[in-house]
Simulated assay, not measured.
Amino acid sequence: MSSSSTSSSSASSSPFGADAAAGLRVLVTAGASGIGRAIADALIAHGARVHVCDVEERFLADYRAAHGEAGATRADVASEADVERLFAEVGRHLGGLDVLVNNAGIAGPTGGVEAIAPADWRRTIDVCLTGQFLCTHHAVPLLKAAGGGAIVNLSSAAGRFGYAFRTPYSAAKWGVIGFTQSLAKELGPAGIRVNAILPGIVEGPRMTGVIRDRAAQVGVSYEAMEATYLDSISLRRMVTAEDVAGTVLFLVSPAGRNISGQSLGVCGNVERL
Rank of each mutant, 00 (worst) to 15 (best):
F87S: 03
L100H: 07
T124Q: 11
S182R: 09
L94Q: 09
R166H: 12
F161E: 07
S260C: 11
G17C: 03
P199A: 03
R166K: 12
R123P: 01
R122G: 05
E114N: 12
S155N: 09
A61L: 08
R214M: 13
A164W: 03
A216G: 11
S263V: 09
Y163I: 01
N195F: 00
P189V: 01
H67M: 03
V248P: 10
L235G: 03
H138F: 12
L187M: 09
S4K: 08
V83F: 10
T208M: 08
G148N: 04
H93R: 11
S5D: 14
H67A: 02
A30V: 03
N102D: 09
D126W: 11
A190N: 06
R122I: 09
A255I: 01
R92Y: 08
G265F: 04
A45G: 14
A20F: 07
V252Y: 06
A72P: 03
D120K: 14
M225H: 13
H46C: 05
G268K: 10
G96V: 07
F179A: 05
L251T: 00
T73C: 01
S79H: 07
I35F: 01
L94G: 05
I151N: 03
D98M: 04
D120A: 15
R160G: 05
A30K: 00
P199H: 07
L249S: 05
V266I: 14
E84N: 09
L24Y: 02
A107M: 10
V127I: 14
H137R: 15
I192M: 04
S155A: 15
G17K: 11
F161Q: 06
T180V: 10
L134F: 12
A119W: 08
W174L: 02
R74L: 04
S13K: 14
D82T: 04
P109W: 15
C267M: 12
M225W: 11
T208A: 12
P189G: 00
R236H: 14
I151P: 00
G96R: 10
F250M: 10
R92V: 09
A88L: 05
S170Y: 05
P109M: 14
Y63P: 03
A145L: 07
R74D: 00
L264M: 12
T29W: 09
T136L: 09
V77Q: 07
G31M: 06
F87Q: 04
I201L: 13
V218P: 02
A255V: 02
V220K: 13
A30S: 08
S33N: 13
D62R: 14
L273C: 11
S8T: 10
S33V: 06
G246I: 04
S12H: 11
L27A: 02
P205K: 15
A172H: 02
L183Q: 14
L129Q: 14
R58A: 15
I35C: 02
E226H: 13
E186T: 12
E80D: 13
C267F: 13
R236W: 09
L43P: 00
L235S: 03
G188E: 14
I44A: 11
R74T: 04
A227T: 12
G112S: 15
R212M: 09
W121I: 10
V248Y: 07
Y222K: 02
V270T: 15
A61V: 05
I201A: 14
M207H: 12
A216M: 07
T228W: 13
N258C: 01
A190M: 02
E114S: 15
E69Y: 05
H67Y: 11
E57P: 00
G68Q: 13
S8F: 08
D98C: 08
V26H: 06
A88D: 14
P15R: 10
R74H: 00
